[in-house]
Nucleic acid binder design. Structure first.
Lengths: 194, 194
DNA sequence: TTTTGATTTAAACAAGTGATTAAAACAAAT
DNA sequence: ATTTGTTTTAATCACTTGTTTAAATCAAAA
């Protein structure tokens, strides 16, 4: 492989942290996954917390960086916004199934991320959506609008382990199920507007 | 207080485990919260894992015990089922906001719970729903039906820390927001049927 | 070749954490 | 009052885990 030691560690940290979360991850697991000596991890990143911070910020951007550019653009219609958001999210999450669970669970406990969310509050606060809804005569709040898109799109990934282990859906069918849903969600969301 | 030592420990374990999850919880935290000596915890429950098992099973039942009795009852119409489920869930979760996050996150790693989910597969597998949908001429799958109810109802609780720390909604407004949503979700779900 | 600085390793430290032990305190029964 | 079994405590063990240290290896420069 062509990766530097630093990159190998990051890569391994990405994998283990997103799978198990901060607390359940041991630095030794990361070192082993990266195929390097444990001390190297501290040589390059000083501490577990430090390394984690890099990953959680990266993943936070991955999960929420999508939203604002789309929602805040007045040139894009409501319908297109939903469609684009759902498509982008679905594609992203199919490649990174642990992402929403990981980010949302660490937001609860990570002081730094909480601050960062406060700063990027505009990420989700959407006067543009508010006015687009009003123009079309819809009285639904933009918060409900955003909540519904995210609920219908993210929740299936967060609950996948439940439904797979219950046998209600098989691992191999999941991607197909999600891909079908992707087509329906925009209509469903439009139907929530009144 | 009127609680026995055993109950005090369970109570404390409930609180700390559901807040922080298995890994991030230290037995000393539970002991302190319960106001008892650390050794007592092991005297009564042998191990952290043992105590945890009691809590996770209890919480699992709390979260999923609701579903089957309602969905599998042929006497209850689709509309009533959605309405009842959403109402019950909303009330339950308003009192226990960490519940869905806790249960879903531990399902990923708890071998015993995974087995238990397999056993209670009928919990979610719903031939009754399937036939009720068919009778009404709807072609939507029962899986999508269940997924949509749960997405719209559970996700807001799972993402609450995000939206609160982003400032999009205030802690005090949340219960109100959820209570309003509760009225709308049944209509929204019915509109997903086709 | 020697030197110098960066990289890597093996070993161990220090604190944290789940669990145990042995003795003390307590309560109920005799 | 004494005995007996239960409950509680203080102390400590054994192991895990994040981190450090000091030495070894390597690569590039002089």
């Amino acid at each position: 492989m062509e990766l530097t030691t630093e990159e190998k560690i990051i890569e391994a940290a990405r994998k283990i942290f997103t799978q198990k979360g901060f607390s359940a991850t041991r630095t030794r697991d990361i070192a082993e996954e990266a195929g390097i000596n444990l001390a190297l991890l501290n040589y390059y990143f000083r501490s577990k917390q430090n390394l984690f911070q890099i990953i959680i910020e990266e993943k936070f951007d991955e999960l929420f960086g999508i939203i604002n550019p789309i929602l805040s653009n007045r040139e894009i219609s409501l319908e297109e916004k939903i469609e684009t958001l759902v498509t982008n999210y679905t594609n992203l999450l199919l490649e990174n199934e642990d992402l929403p669970f990981f980010v949302l669970s660490e937001i609860k406990s990570n002081e730094f991320i909480i601050k960062r969310v406060k700063q990027n509050a505009e990420i989700l606060s959407q006067p543009v959506i508010e006015s687009q809804l009003k123009e079309r005569g819809f009285t639904t709040s933009s918060f409900n609008f955003i909540m519904n898109i995210m609920s219908l799109t993210l929740f299936p990934f967060m609950s996948k382990p439940l439904f797979v282990s219950s046998g209600l859906i098989k691992e191999e069918e999941f991607a197909r199920f999600i891909t079908e849903r992707k087509k329906d969600i925009p209509t469903w969301v439009m139907n929530t507007l009144k």
